[in-house]
Amino acid sequence: MYKITRKAMLTPTICLMDVEAPRLAASAQPGQFLIVRAREEGERIPLTICDYDREQGTVTIVTQIVGASSRLICALEEGDCFTDVVGPLGCPSDFVELPDGALKGSRYLFVAGGLGTAPVYPQAKYLHERGAHVDVVVGAKTADLLILREEMSAVCDNLYVCTDDGSEGHHGLVTEKVKLLLAEGQHYDQAVAIGPMIMMKFVALTLRESGIPLTVSLNTLMVDGTGMCGCCRITVGGKVRFACVEGPEFDAYQVDFDEALRRQTIYRPQEQEADHKCKIGRN
C-alpha cells in the first residue's frame, strides 16, 4: 500500500510523486489535502493533493524540502512505500459546489508563490476543463526553480511568470504583477492565492481595494488533520477556526495573517535541531 509509482525531482529541493492510494484517489477534490508519514517514527505531514488519477488509483503530491520531515519524504524513491497516507482531508474548493454551467466564462486569477504552483494546478485544471477563463501568476526566486510550467500552461489561458532575479518574465514580486494586470484593466470574478503565508498576506493587502473576492489556502501546523487537536487553529473574521476541517481555504480578507505567521513558528527551535541532526546523519 501507498507505493510510490513515480518520482521526479522538479528542482533540487522539490520532488513530485505519484502514490498508490485507491480510496483516496477515488474521492479527492481540488482544494483538499492528505497527510503522509514517511516512516514508522515519522511526523504526520500535510501535503496538498495536486492531482489524482481515479482509474490508476494514484494521487500526485509535490513536496518541497524545508526541514527534517520533508527531507525524509523526498528521500523516498520509486517503488518505496509511505508508512501512511490519509485523506482527502479538508473541504473541497468552493467552486466544486457550483454547477458546471456557472463556471463557464467566469474569470479566475490564481497567484502562486514557489511551491504554491502545485496546489494551484488541480484548481486551474478543474476550472479550465469547465470553460472558465484562468490566468495564473507564478513567482519564484529564479527561473530554474519554476515548477510544473508545461502542465500549468496547458490548463490556463495566460501564465505570467515573475522571478526575483529577473531571469524570466516579470522582474519582481507577484504582487507587482497582479497590480499591473489590474491596471491594464483585467477584470476577475474570483482570485485565489496559494504560497508562503507571507506572500498570501501581501496578495490580500494588494487585492483588498479591488473588491475581487480572494481565497487563500492556509498551510498551518497540523497533527491529526481531523479536527481533534486544535493545533491548526487560526482566527478568521474574529472567530477561531480549525484549518484542517473548516479549511484549508478561507476568505483572505478575514484571515488574521500575523497570528497565523506567528503560530507557524511554535516548533522552530525543535525543527531546526531535528534538521541539523538529520543533515549530520547524511554526511
Binding site: R39, E41, E43, V223, M228, C229, G230, E271
Partner: peptide
C-alpha cells in the same frame, strides 16, 4: 488533545520520534 496526541500517538517523548512537542 494536541499535547497528549503528540506525546502518546506520535510518541514525542521518545527521542527517536520525529514529532516535536513544546
Amino acid at each position: 488533545n494536541e499535547f497528549l496526541t503528540r506525546s502518546n500517538l506520535m510518541r514525542a517523548f521518545d527521542p527517536s520520534s520525529d514529532t516535536p512537542i513544546f
